[in-house]
Each structure stands twice: as structure tokens, then as C-alpha cells.
Design a binder for these strands. Structure first.
Lengths: 230, 230
DNA sequence: ACCTGAACACCGTTCAAGT
DNA sequence: ACCTGAACACCGTTCAAGT
């Protein structure tokens, strides 16, 4: 410590804007849209570790407790973020007609969006669609595409769920470290696995997560495509 | 408050065994195996919400800080639990010969084990195999089965990763609430999706998560099986 | 080396008080 | 209705002191 002034140090620059005084402001300063975009921005800058209710409040220049007038919990904020991100998933190709290519476009973009947001996956995976309007809109577009492609009605939801499950798991795989399959000192006792890892590494142009995703997705397309009547 | 004694109330019964006094005990009271099985038991009783380092220490009758002589973090405990659980995944059928049936047995048991432990999925999905010996042993058994079934070496790891990604996503799906696909007030604006959900519900014998898992797994088996040379 | 006990630096959330 | 500020009931983790 050298030459500290008597004023407490402000780690966020020369002067955080002074907060308003207590009491209801003339116009509300917060709403769900503002909270959602501030959350998305904060997550982008600080990651999910840095995403706390206190940090979110700071970027919005309010007290943490003010957030609870607009959301009921931190999980609620994550739901808003999740639904917003879903609008970036590409479902446009389902209108065009080629079912296989539509699923490809959808699945790759879906994985790419959420591979940067894996902490949301436990939230999405069990969230009632009624709580996420944009997510519901995505399902409508995808279901319509499956229906037009000739899928029997009772197989449409299971097929979508199956592909989605594959996408969620694959989104985690994107974030795996490069050495995830390094057997280390155990290599000698795992000859088949070690050999397979070795042979994959020798190919080694594309990212392993992309190779696995393409392989699984094309297998699902082939297997599920057989269900179509059209 | 009625008739409180001067002694502080003990919420855990008449008398928690008195702790030992400070200083190194004659024999160590903790080890990784004991921590792992206590953790598994605690998770079974209190769920992952109730699984805290303090609660874990209490079941082991030690101070929370004592745990850090044997593990470096809470995540470390989760890794130990994850690896232990993996030994309950059934890989025995890979020795028998029928590749399709072996993958079925493996995948269903893998999903069933971790559907009760979804908070471990973010841990498993990115954990280097070198840090989890039982998990590595599972990969060895599975790789050997794929190899014997005639898979080209460089496709074995991607195929396993793809199936595993599907399993992880499907494990979450098992925990989804029954009303997850209820469109609520939006039903009118999502006709294709709502109709598909309706038709699935009319079938309605098997659990939706099981229907989706079977459909996806069989599609993967069909699609991936085509890669075999044998 | 391996315990205890106290302390640290956080969390998310609640709630009275203010306008 | 919608803010502030203080408080609550926790967290995981560190570390000096003890044997």
C-alpha cells in the first residue's frame, strides 16, 4: 500500500454513477428485457462464474434487492437468458422442404449457441415450454417441418427430444479439454482405448467434438429418416 | 420457545458423538474411500442441494476443514463420486459378442445411473479420463467391444462420444416434469407442436423419456452400425 | 501428517422503510 | 409499485495452532 487516500478505493474506475435515493422512482428503471440483456452482456464478459445477482445489479446501477421486483430468483434470470438465446437458433430451413438439411442447420446452430452457455443446459432440459415463449416457437417450427416431411404424428416429439438430448450432451463435449482422452500412466492397461485415441489423433484435422457431432447427427438422420412415410 | 434449557438445542438427536480434540489423531479418521461413500450416502438422503462440505463433514464426524487434507475441493469430491458410480454401469455384454445388444445394455444402464445424478454430468462431460480410473476402465471395455465388432479404429472414439452425448442429454430428460410440453395459453399459436404432443399423450403407456431414448438409441445403432466392416 | 476452531470473502434472498 | 440499505442464513475454503 502506497499513498492511499482516506477515501475507500473504487475498483471500478473513477466514479460509479451515484445511485438514486430510496423510494419508488418516477419511472421504473428495471424491466425483464433490460435485465435479460444486461445478464447476457455480463455473462459474455465475466462468464457464469462472474454472473452473480450482485454483479448483475451493479451493471444496472441498482441494489441487488431491486432485481426481485422483476424476477423471483436467479434461476428466473437464467430462464430469461435461455429463452432469448433460443431465438438465435436457426430454424429457417424447415420451411424450405429438405428435412435432412433443415435438421442439420438446426442442430449445428443449436449446439453452437449453447456450447457457450452450458450452465443453462440443466435449466433448458427440464423447463416447461409454457415458461419460454421463444423456445416454444422453435418447437413449433421444428414440429411443422417434421410433419411436412412425413413423420407419423406420435413420433415427432420423441424424435425431436432425442435429437435435442444429443445436442445438449454434445454442447458439453465442445467445452472438453484437449487432453480429455489422455490415459496418462494407465495407457498400458487400456490398449484398445489408447489405440483408438491414437488413431483418431493421427487423422487430426477437424476438432474431435465436431467429428463426433457430425457422426452422431448423421447416424440419427439416417436412423430417424427411415420413419418417414413421405 | 418453551422451557429452553441453557444448553444449545441439538437438532440431530440426543447427542452427536463428541468430537476429538485438536491435533493429529493416532490413526487418520478420513480417507478418499470413506469420503466417497459418505458423499454418496448423503446425496442419496439429502439430494445435491443438501450436499455441502459442512453436511458431509458432519456425517463423518469431523470439522469441514478436515476434508481438505484428502480432497482439494468440493468438485474433487464430485469427481470421486462420479467415478464410483461409473462402476455400476453395465459393460459386461461387450464381451459376449452381439454389438447392438451390448450397446443397448450399456446405454440404458449408463442413462439410468446418471439420471439420478444429473448434477454430475457437467463434471463427467469434461473430465480427463486420467482423473477417473473406473471411467477409463469402462471406456476400455467399450472400445474393445467396438473394435471386435469391426469398427474402423479412427471412428471408435467419435462413435462412443456421440452415444455418450446422447446419454447425458437423455439423463436430464428423465428428470423433466410431466407437463414440460404443455403449451398452456400459447397452444392456439403452436398447432403442429400441440397436435404432436397430443398424439403422443394418446399413446401414453410408456414414459415419454423412455420412448425418446429408445427411438434415439435405435436410430444411432442403425446409423452407426453401418460403419462396421465385420 | 492430519485434526480443530476461527476467520474470510463471498453467496442468494428477505424485508422494513421510503417515495 | 418499485426503489434502498441492512440483515439473514448460509456457502466453500484457508490457515494458525495443536498433537
Amino acid at each position: 500500500m502506497t499513498a492511499a487516500t482516506s477515501a475507500p478505493a473504487d475498483p471500478h474506475g473513477p466514479a460509479a454513477r451515484p445511485r438514486r435515493r430510496a423510494g419508488r422512482p418516477a419511472a421504473a428503471v428495471l424491466d425483464q428485457n433490460g435485465i435479460t440483456s444486461a445478464a447476457l452482456q455480463l455473462i459474455g464478459k465475466s462468464g457464469y462464474d462472474g454472473f452473480t445477482m450482485a454483479a448483475l445489479a451493479r451493471t444496472l446501477n441498482v441494489a441487488p434487492s431491486a432485481l426481485y421486483n422483476h424476477v423471483s430468483s436467479k434461476r428466473d434470470v437464467l430462464v430469461l437468458v435461455q429463452d432469448h438465446l433460443t431465438s438465435f437458433v436457426d430454424v429457417t430451413a424447415f420451411e424450405a422442404g429438405d428435412w435432412e438439411q433443415a435438421v442439420r442447420d438446426w442442430a449445428w446452430s443449436y449446439r453452437d449457441v449453447f456450447s457457450k452457455h452450458t450452465p443453462l443446459i440443466p435449466v433448458i432440459a427440464v423447463l416447461p415450454v409454457a415458461d419460454a415463449p421463444k423456445t416454444l416457437a422453435m418447437y413449433e417450427a421444428v414440429s411443422a417441418g417434421f410433419s411436412r416431411a412425413g413423420f407419423p404424428q406420435e413420433r415427432i416429439v420423441p424424435a425431436i427430444v432425442a435429437i435435442e438430448s444429443f445436442i445438449f450432451g454434445s454442447a458439453y463435449d465442445v467445452t472438453a479439454p484437449a487432453d480429455i482422452f489422455d490415459s496418462g500412466t494407465m495407457a498400458a492397461s487400456t490398449p484398445h482405448f489408447t489405440a483408438a485415441v491414437q488413431r483418431l489423433a493421427e487423422e487430426g484435422h477437424e476438432k474431435p467434438a465436431d467429428v463426433a457431432f457430425r457422426l452422431g447427427l448423421e447416424a440419427l438422420l439416417a436412423g430417424l429418416g427411415a420413419l418417414r412415410a413421405a
